[in-house]
């Protein structure tokens, strides 16, 4: 790209991006040397995105937080293997996804083994039981949020891993197609097609909540 042809705002953004990558590289180097404060900074800069991803795979925030914690601990243990070929989050994301997929498979197996009855719509749903504060603050809104949350959770659970993953990355994290292509390791056209099919499936499962056909 010809730098001189860039608009001032683009140039500033590029500069900020370089600075950010440099700062992250320094943090990684320090963390690789055992500096836990540096690793803490890496965690704090990515934890919200990580939680959003994990929530796409877990029924409640406690399970999601457990997966996030598990993934960061694994990342720390394997940090010396990180070569800096991508951003820390791109590298960490794979570890997190593996933790989430393992968890959702274990859960599915556990339910199958014990003849678990799907209690999503019952009063014992963890999501329902953990939203007390919001309910008190705004009963009408929280009821709608709760119901919607249950429906989303139930619908997401029915999707394949690939469809769930791409929806979370696009709809919640707002990654561009280019970023999706990089993080998922597929062509841009595949991103577009997979996203289209994932949305179609989710829309089907959420019929009545996101508008009628």
């Amino acid at each position: 790209m010809n730098i001189s042809s860039q608009k001032p705002s683009e140039s500033n953004e590029a500069h900020d991006g370089v600075q950010k990558r440099k700062a992250e590289a320094e943090l990684i180097e320090r963390a690789q040397g055992g500096d836990q404060r540096a690793f803490q900074a890496l965690v704090e800069s990515t934890q919200q995105k990580a939680f959003a991803v994990a929530l796409g795979y877990c029924k409640n925030r406690d399970d999601a937080m457990d997966r996030v914690q598990e993934a960061y601990v694994k990342a720390y243990r394997n940090l010396t293997r990180f070569q800096g070929g991508s951003s820390f989050y791109t590298w960490f994301y794979r570890i997190l996804m593996n933790a989430c997929i393992d968890f959702s498979r274990r859960e599915a197996k556990r339910k199958k083994d014990v003849g678990y009855e799907d209690g999503l719509s019952s009063g014992s749903d963890p999501l329902v039981s953990t939203t007390g504060t919001l309910e008190n603050a705004n009963p009408g809104k929280s009821l709608a949020n709760k119901e919607l949350g249950e429906q989303i959770e139930s619908a997401m659970a029915k999707l394949s891993d690939a469809h769930r993953e791409i929806l979370v990355l696009r709809e919640v994290q707002g990654l561009s197609y280019e970023e999706l292509s990089e993080i998922l390791g597929v062509a841009r056209g595949t991103v577009m097609s997979r996203l289209h099919h994932a949305r179609g499936k989710l829309k089907g499962y959420l019929e009545g909540y996101v508008g009628q056909e």
Binding site: R61, T133, V168
Partner: peptide, 21 residues
């Protein structure tokens, strides 16, 4: 769809203690 997914995450995010993490 986008709004529904984002709402669920926002709702849960408000309850999370990242310091404890």
């Amino acid at each position: 769809i986008k709004l529904a997914m984002a709402t669920r995450v926002d709702t849960e995010m408000q309850q999370v203690d990242f310091g404890a993490l």
